[in-house]
Nucleic acid binder design. Structure first.
Lengths: 193, 193
DNA sequence: CGTCTATTTGAATGTACTCAAAAGCGGTGG
DNA sequence: CCACCGCTTTTGAGTACATTCAAATAGACG
């Protein structure tokens, strides 16, 4: 029963029978990653969606000048993977790398499709999940359009204080869309207040 | 049968029976808007999700300095509304305004919840829909992080040439995250090449 | 045709970036 | 346990991208 945490998580949104829990258990495969190990490299096809039991991962792209841009940080009780690559079975643009030593549960597209058929309630769960993710992303876009780097940084440390300490500053800069050098200057300025 | 376009649209993703089509028909209410009319004003709760039969709408926020920031342009065969406000039944931060004279079909939360229960296939449809919207948003975030305003503008006119002519330039600027003045300068520079 | 709004142009300014170097910090091995 | 190495963060100076403010021009609509 490695997937207790996953079942607990599902149970917050939908009710599952014993049989359904056993089916879920049989389809999710556990995996451990070490710090700096890649879950996905750009150019590879993302074959699984991953539920995070513990640890932390970062999804990022690399632009034509070699700079990294962080799309998401994912921690326990969240999912990670590249949805576009996963569903279209085409090469991904993104890299997903372990920031700590995560324990995850993975499911393949074939197994997830089967699960949707056998447990339609999960379609409801995943609709709600993606809907919430969509809403968060929209808020991030709105912030990027309407706020300065300083405001976005203050908002970030307010919202994500839980894993601030766990992430190098340069990755926070790449999430906020600024350089590490400029973030350092912002912090200095804020401390002086 | 005002909702032919909606039924045609659903039918691209799922198969519907006559009874299901009739149920859908009965729950979606048609509405016409005139140019510059609001579908939603910030502070109001978004009571309906709207499918666009024809025309064009813009979703935007207004920041503390009074500047507008465009989150989405929505045209025929797409949906508009504020998901967060709609699902949580709380006041919206966004405004939705008609750029042309749109014809739309609206459904309330109660009716949509009922529809999900009676036609579970629609849960599948909406999961796919939101999933695609999520993927597009992620690409937009990645572009905002990794590209200059010039690259984003060129990409925008490439992707959205269909409705470029239908939208004032200042709204495109507010979508790209730049001022109308700077967009004008970019265009001048690009024409000179 | 006149009014209102959108776009363009120009000059001065500010926000964020680049490049380069120094300082700090964490892990590893002797 | 300390010394060293590599990586991250800080600091400073010069630069570039994008903004502000103001005014002129162009377009849209009644």
């Amino acid at each position: 029963m490695e997937s207790n945490k996953l079942i607990d998580h599902f149970s917050k949104y939908i009710q599952l029978s014993i049989e359904e829990i056993e089916l879920i258990d049989s389809l999710f495969k556990p995996k451990s990653l070490k710090k700096k190990e890649f879950l996905l490299r750009s150019g590879e096809t993302c074959r699984t969606e991953s539920f995070i039991i513990s640890g932390c991962l970062r999804t990022y792209s690399i632009d034509e000048n070699g700079f990294e841009h962080t799309l998401t940080f994912a921690i326990e009780d969240w999912w990670t993977g590249d949805l576009l690559s996963f569903f279209t079975e085409t090469p991904s643009f993104y890299n997903i790398i372990a920031l700590e030593n995560p324990e995850i549960l993975q499911i393949t597209k074939i197994d997830l499709d089967q699960l949707y058929l056998e447990v339609p309630k999960l379609e409801h769960y995943f609709r709600l999940l993606i809907q919430n993710a969509y809403i968060s992303q929209q808020q991030r876009i709105n912030q990027n359009l309407s706020q300065t780097a300083e405001q976005r940084y203050l908002d970030f440390i307010g919202k994500h204080s839980a894993f601030l300490q766990r992430i190098p500053q340069k990755h926070i800069a790449s999430y906020l869309g600024i350089t590490p050098v400029f973030l350092s200057m912002l912090r200095k300025k804020l401390i002086q207040k």
